[in-house]
């Protein structure tokens, strides 16, 4: 399938929306009590359309950052902007959740009581701007594009976990979001399914360019998917090293064996390992 994809698919030049700017964000849990610092003066600039991989050991506070962007909880200080508009900052500690930033959750959050098609149609149905026929036509065709035809009337519990993740991404894309926020979505998948999911995700990305903020602790996944890796220090969380992945898009699984991939792996591995050891010694729990 990679043969038909033309060369500029990986370029960000044509993407205008979805630039995230994180400035000096601090998050302290329970400031009056135990005062746990989860994020420490963290600044990251993500250009529109970039696949930005946030890499760090489990429990380092990556998810805290994601939740702040999504608007699930507030920040203690600093600011986050999306395309120059303030999401949260000094006057407004918590962002309002909205369909311009959609989260793909760690354990998947397809509604098990709705069919896959109803799940995909959920966002636009709630917005109520289009007619039901228009929404369902769009949902069907988007599912077909993602190779999900035939699963429309099944419930999420009836299909494989790999397909469920694909449905969830399609459900997010139905709302034309500017940013997709991935919270280690492939963590629970076996390595074979994972590799299929990675190629599928890139394929979807080449068709619908959105900014991707992707949390992972899997280095191979990070380098394979990302334009850029931001390796975070263990708690409190702040960027420690940035690795530019200069392997050109579109990519397929052959890049995994390329020498450049190995070099980047080695470059990142030492830093990640050091942080993981620190986190391990500090006895951090999952968070």
């Amino acid at each position: 399938m990679s043969a038909v994809i033309d060369e500029n698919l990986g370029s960000l030049a044509d993407v205008t929306d979805g630039a995230i700017s994180i400035k000096d964000v601090v998050k302290i849990y329970d400031p009056d009590g135990a005062a746990v610092m989860a994020v420490d003066h963290c600044s990251i600039e993500i250009p529109a359309g970039e696949i930005c991989m946030i890499v760090g050991p489990s429990g380092c506070g990556k998810t805290t950052l994601l939740n702040a962007i999504a608007g699930f909880h507030g920040i203690t200080s600093g600011s986050i902007h999306l395309d120059g508009e303030l999401l949260c900052g000094p006057e407004k500690p918590q962002a309002e959740p909205g369909s311009d930033r959609i989260v793909v959750f760690q354990n998947g959050a397809l509604f098990p009581w709705k069919t896959n098609l109803d799940n995909v149609a959920f966002g636009p149905m709630m917005a109520g701007k289009l007619s039901k026929e228009e929404i369902y036509d769009k949902a069907r065709s988007m599912m077909a594009d993602a190779g999900l035809s035939g699963n429309e009337n099944n419930y999420p519990g009836e299909i494989s976990s790999g397909l469920r993740r694909r449905v969830e991404i399609v459900r997010a894309l139905m709302n034309d979001p500017k940013v997709l926020l991935f919270d280690e979505p492939y963590r629970a998948l076996d390595s074979l399914t994972k590799s299929v999911m990675h190629e599928a995700l890139l394929e979807i990305y080449y068709r619908n360019k959105v900014t991707i903020f992707f949390i992972t602790h899997d280095l191979e996944e990070a380098i394979f998917l990302g334009h850029r890796l931001i390796i975070m220090s263990s708690r409190p969380c702040k960027p420690k090293k940035i690795v530019e992945v200069d392997i050109p898009h579109p990519r397929d699984y052959s890049v995994l064996t390329s020498p450049r991939f190995r070099e980047l792996m080695n470059e990142a591995k030492d830093v990640v390992h050091e942080e993981a050891t620190k986190a391990f010694e500090a006895g951090e729990k999952e968070g």
């Binding site: 959050a109 509604f111 959920f122 997010a172």
Partner: peptide, 22 residues
């Protein structure tokens, strides 16, 4: 699971819609 209500709010559901659909 909290992710269901979070997902619903992400997808633009109001509080009442979340109540009905989630």
């Amino acid at each position: 699971d909290e992710s269901y209500s979070r997902a619903a709010r992400c997808l633009g559901a109001s509080r009442w819609q979340t109540f009905v659909h989630v």
